[in-house]
Design a protein around this nucleic acid. Structure first.
Lengths: 154, 154
DNA sequence: TCGTTTCGCCGCCGATCCTGCGGCAAACCG
DNA sequence: CGGTTTGCCGCAGGATCGGCGGCGAAACGA
């Protein structure tokens, strides 16, 4: 079923990571296969879950989202379902782009985009701090995005 | 040229963020416009830079990248070009998915994916710590990815 | 008010692209 | 060695794309 990924598969993935809307025929001639074989590989990569989907990359600033922040969140360990409740709430919050449970000095690292500082104040107060079990937060505002593509190495 | 994004534009963006490879005709009937008008809007959104590109979302674990880490990096402020040199090196490193310059207790927050702990040890020692000007690092290993889509709110 | 311009949308149509089908050759296996 | 599997190809019908001309409504100015 799930074999090791072929060299052509990796090439397909590498191309599709950056040019997700490329037509199949052009993808085919770039990897040196026929469109039929290439389309077959693409379909298989999706069915096997290697490719989980396709998406457009948007410019946040042109959408009015000018502030990117990372928030370190610490939870009260007392309530046992605090983690589940926090995770569920975070998944519902549209400002939260990512949220990771980490090991170390705090519990969750949250990445969020908002319009500006007032909007972040609102998000912090009404969104994060009002969640039950949130003990402490520490905010880092991003001054410059050095690298943002998030392209996986192949 | 100058762009107030109208309601249909936002709907297009919202759909394309999650289904970037949807054919134009289906996109058209979902937003209630003709394929021609929809394609015209899509082209305009790309030309104006709102849509910066399209990409496939891949499953890191199926590619053998089982460890996600965040690294807080502090630089020596002594050398003036240390920041530029660090940024350039980070852009070249394939393991680094994101790198942000932040204000607060440290200078850069790095998000990286590697195969496992030994691979991270190698990346830390030969990649990050060997860069000139790197003063101190603090690593947080991700135990659970609560939210990873990175979809912008519209 | 009314003619003119502009803008966004539509329908049309040739070119392009997609996808299921049959065939073929190499690899695999009992 | 014969049969099966696997991956690829070419083909063809149907779907999709993208450029072109036209149309109606809103904006504009005299």
């Amino acid at each position: 079923m799930t074999d090791e990924l072929d060299r052509v598969d990796r090439q397909i993935l590498k191309i599709l990571q950056r040019e997700g809307r490329i037509p199949n025929v052009e993808l085919a001639e770039r990897v040196g296969l026929s469109p039929t074989a290439t389309g077959e590989r693409l379909r298989r990569l999706q069915k096997d879950g290697v490719i989980t989907g396709f998406g457009a990359r948007l410019d946040p600033h042109l959408l009015g989202l000018n502030l990117l922040v990372f928030v370190e969140v610490s939870l009260d360990k007392t309530t046992p379902d605090a983690f589940a409740r926090f995770a569920a709430a975070v998944r519902r919050a549209p400002e939260v782009l990512e949220c990771h449970m980490v090991g170390g000095g705090f519990d969750y690292l949250v990445k969020a985009r908002v319009a500006d500082m007032p909007a972040y104040r609102r998000f912090l107060g009404e969104g994060l701090l009002s969640l039950p079990g949130v003990n402490n937060t520490r905010t880092y505002a991003v001054m410059e995005e050095v690298k943002s593509d998030g392209v996986l190495p192949l």
